[in-house]
Design a protein around this nucleic acid. Structure first.
Lengths: 195, 195
DNA sequence: CGTCTATTTGAATGTACTCAAAAGCGGTGG
DNA sequence: CCACCGCTTTTGAGTACATTCAAATAGACG
């Protein structure tokens, strides 16, 4: 059992690589272990890493002028995470990324990302599929935010991401759902009472 | 001036095609003119076409159990449009697509889409970039929905898509912003008064 | 044990919705 | 060309959903 098995297996779901391609890909990665509650990216920093989460869980969020926090996404084992807009366009980060628990990641720098796509065009396909899935998932989120009230959104969240719901604080869930922690607390009380 | 110039030019922004590749690509497209206020896709139908908008404007939306309409996106000239989730996964459509004004499109069927990606892998890159942009745009929309109130969202919408704002009904804008037409009317009155 | 943060509770307030009715506007047929 | 129809937009009253602020309680961590 080798440490790169998980990421290679994850990629093999979408594209088939030769042994040489696998080795080249792996040579571009930097493995990193990160303690829990560590900020790995902050607003304004250059965002030049795309991270594959080998173990653990991370969260990306942004702050508005008033300091209000909005969770952009929770990312668990086998997900890819970065400030995608800033990574792709080489802009200073507009988001924060922090570990929820102790985590390990494989980082792919923007430079190596570009090399990879040139050297092994199959990765264009891989990342197309990754982006496709991210797009349709995000589109669904937009629509749910518009059509459902907070109680329904919370119920769906619990249902869709039970492993996330049980590992993060209510405050973080509230900031993902776009409501205050106080109101989420009310919703939970109501749901306990109702059933 | 040839009718395919626009779509080829649009693609040339991201990938370089040989004359033969261009011809092959074009051979996969079906040109279609559509009168205004025509539904080109309805919920439950098979969604096997990806459309490049050559001229005009379309809108995609979905309906919830109570019949409430939510606009997923407005798509103008030079945009690509479909029910992406259902197109990619070959599921019955969960959305509706209709023309806002008289429009013309180039349709690429799912079968031809798959052929195209196999025959000219450069299109993997093209669609990766398309999906990337769609993803980051949609992510921004999610965050704005969570952090901004209706008045701010409307102001940004007007600012970001002035050409859309001036061509669609307030009811449609309201359904994109996730508010009622009545409330949008109030917002507009307030904004007139304030400046 | 003490400190810091998360969560709960409650009152007052603000934001957005529902329902109903009236006014405006575009298209169609006589 | 005008009258009518259907749909959009406006207006208003009453209500529901969600926030703010403050304070009390509970949990996590050193």
């Amino acid at each position: 059992m080798e440490i790169h098995d998980a990421i290679l297996k994850s990629i093999a779901k979408h594209i088939v690589l030769t042994k040489e391609e696998q080795d080249y890909f792996i040579s571009l990665l930097v493995y990193k272990e990160i303690p829990k509650k560590t900020t790995v990216l902050a607003e304004g920093q250059s965002c030049n890493q795309l991270s594959y989460i080998h173990s653990g869980a991370l969260r990306s969020y942004c702050l508005d002028e008033k300091g209000k926090e909005s969770t952009i996404m929770f990312a668990m084992t086998d997900w890819w995470l970065t400030d995608m807009y800033c990574f792709l366009n080489e802009k200073p980060a507009i988001t924060f990324i922090e570990t929820i628990e102790e985590s390990s990641v494989f980082n792919l720098s923007k430079v190596n990302f570009d090399h990879l796509l040139t050297a092994i065009p199959k990765f264009e396909r891989f990342f197309r599929i990754l982006m496709q899935n991210a797009y349709t998932r995000e589109q669904l989120r937009s629509i749910e935010n518009l059509t459902l009230n907070a109680e329904e959104r919370y119920a769906r969240f619990i249902n869709k991401y039970p492993h996330i719901a049980s590992n993060v604080t209510q405050k973080q869930i509230a900031s993902y759902l776009g409501i205050t922690p106080e109101f989420l607390s009310l919703i939970r009380k109501k749901q306990l009472r109702d059933k």
